[in-house]
Amino acid sequence: MGNSSEAIVHIKHLTKSYRRGEQTVPVLTDITFDIPTGEFIALMGPSGSGKSTLLNLIAGIDKPDSGILKVGGTDIALLSEGELADWRAANIGFIFQFYNLMPVLTAFENVELPLLLTPLSFKERQERVELALVMVGLSDRMEHYPSELSGGQQQRVAIARAFISDPVILVADEPTGDLDRTSAEEILAILDRLNKEMEKTIIMVTHDPHAAKTAHLIRHLEKGELDVEN
């Protein structure tokens, strides 16, 4: 377990439950753990174990019921809706299972989206987007629409979009869940490079033990509680 002073994610006694009709369903119960800066961690567990909920909380798209949740030193549970949006834009890169690209935008425009929230000029944005697409091996597909790309290529576009604004943390929810083995390997290799070469902290939720092996640390969630396993 990482030292909390160096931890980019600091979680203490975190709880989260959902209301389903009249019933309150607990999803996370008293989670306490830290993620060190620069870590590549895989969260595993059966469906409904709360791993995606934990990821959503860390990424600032959901709010905990109680407990402490500090990401990059910011207590994100205290941020307002608008502040949280700005915080996500600056600190978090998202990678989704189904890529979540805008179908009407080209690969270039999809990658450019997060930069529209920054003060960068078009020229600066263009340079960065082109560099990011070169890094994921899609320099020849910039003007292609998502429907013209394979699943693996779409996920690479999504990864370029995730790191384009240089966030500190990348969150990936089943990033290889919709891909064949070869494409999955390529995606995992890119994530590994992002972790090693660009020192991004990566938090990946996965069902796939093979994918989890790319991570340096694996955590299991079971019925809202965390086990430690390396």
């Binding site: 990424a59 798209i61 809706e81 608008g82 949006a85 700005d86 996500r88 834009a89 600056a90 978090i92 998202f94 989704f96 189904f98 979540n100 805008m102 179908p103 989206l113 997060p114 929230l117 979009r161």
Partner: peptide
């Protein structure tokens, strides 16, 4: 809906 959720996650405001 999914595109809206994605845009919001990326940091676009309401």
């Amino acid at each position: 809906i999914m595109e809206i959720g994605t845009l919001r996650a990326l940091g676009f405001r309401r």
